[in-house]
Amino acid sequence: MDLFSRSWAALRTTVAYLSDEDFGRPSGCAGWLVRDLVCHLIIDAQDVLITLVTPADAEPTRDEVTYWETADVQPNGEHPLDALTVRLAAAYEEPRLLKFHLDDVGSAAGRAAELADPAVCVGTRGHVITTGDYLRAYVLEWTLHHLDLIAQLPDAPRPPEECLARSRTMLERIAGTALPAEWSDADALLIATGRREPSDAERAALTGAAAKLPIFLQ
């Protein structure tokens, strides 16, 4: 749960760092500009708040790994919900309004997570999961989206190293295979989720089950 707070705080700090011009740059999410991704983060923060106040009187059906489902193809921004996010982001008109809303809702989500009992079960996406596992799953969400946010911004603040390492471990568990040890944690996350094409040398390092990568999370 500590890593949830670190990854989420780092992501929101990086959004605050962005210039107005940065919001019009491509993000690491196919079909989305940075402004669209920031709008998605606002929706994510709302989802966290909703989930944390949705107790479930049942045994968990998901954990931090099985929370994630995989798709056969990479999202391209054309799904109706993805397209809706683009329209919502455009409605803000000014980057400062996106920043303000993310800071407002995002801070509330962060406080709610710190106050939450990790053992309590909550309902989300039609499943039951402990609050602790739910928040741990979001470390991967925040870290991947932090990398998406700075895809075209090499000088922007990066995700915390401990969050990158934890996210890599989680992704390896989801994929059911270890990723090449010589890859950095950031490269492992980007390549394994299809956000970056591997070089010839990187592709040659993929053997066994890892050769089936990338996987697309949803």
Results as ranks from 00 to 15, higher is better:
3 L>Q: 11
4 F>L: 10
4 F>P: 00
4 F>Q: 07
5 S>T: 14
6 R>D: 06
9 A>H: 10
13 T>Q: 13
16 A>L: 11
16 A>H: 12
20 D>F: 11
21 E>G: 06
23 F>H: 03
25 R>T: 15
26 P>F: 09
27 S>Y: 05
32 W>I: 13
32 W>H: 04
33 L>Y: 06
34 V>D: 00
36 D>S: 09
37 L>Q: 01
37 L>F: 01
41 L>G: 04
42 I>F: 04
42 I>S: 01
51 T>D: 07
63 D>C: 05
65 V>D: 06
65 V>C: 04
65 V>G: 08
66 T>F: 10
69 E>T: 04
69 E>M: 01
70 T>Q: 14
70 T>C: 08
76 N>Y: 01
77 G>L: 07
79 H>G: 01
81 L>K: 09
81 L>R: 14
84 L>Q: 15
85 T>Q: 08
88 L>S: 09
90 A>E: 13
90 A>N: 08
92 Y>I: 00
99 K>V: 14
100 F>L: 09
100 F>P: 03
101 H>Q: 14
104 D>C: 07
105 V>D: 05
105 V>E: 02
105 V>A: 03
106 G>E: 01
107 S>L: 04
110 G>K: 07
111 R>A: 09
112 A>Y: 02
112 A>G: 05
112 A>I: 02
112 A>Q: 13
112 A>V: 01
112 A>F: 06
113 A>V: 04
113 A>L: 03
113 A>F: 05
114 E>D: 13
115 L>P: 03
116 A>Y: 04
117 D>F: 00
118 P>M: 03
119 A>T: 15
122 V>F: 06
125 R>K: 15
126 G>E: 04
128 V>L: 09
128 V>Q: 08
130 T>S: 09
131 T>F: 01
131 T>D: 08
135 L>V: 01
135 L>R: 07
139 V>F: 00
140 L>F: 05
140 L>S: 02
142 W>T: 15
142 W>V: 12
144 L>D: 11
144 L>V: 15
147 L>G: 00
151 A>F: 12
151 A>G: 02
151 A>S: 15
153 L>T: 10
154 P>N: 13
156 A>I: 00
157 P>I: 10
157 P>Y: 04
158 R>N: 02
160 P>W: 08
166 R>V: 12
166 R>Y: 09
169 T>G: 15
170 M>S: 13
170 M>F: 03
174 I>S: 12
175 A>N: 08
177 T>C: 14
179 L>V: 11
182 E>L: 10
182 E>G: 10
183 W>V: 13
185 D>G: 07
186 A>E: 15
186 A>P: 06
186 A>W: 02
191 I>D: 06
199 S>W: 13
200 D>V: 15
200 D>T: 15
202 E>Y: 08
202 E>C: 11
207 T>F: 03
211 A>I: 12
214 P>I: 12
216 F>G: 02
217 L>G: 09
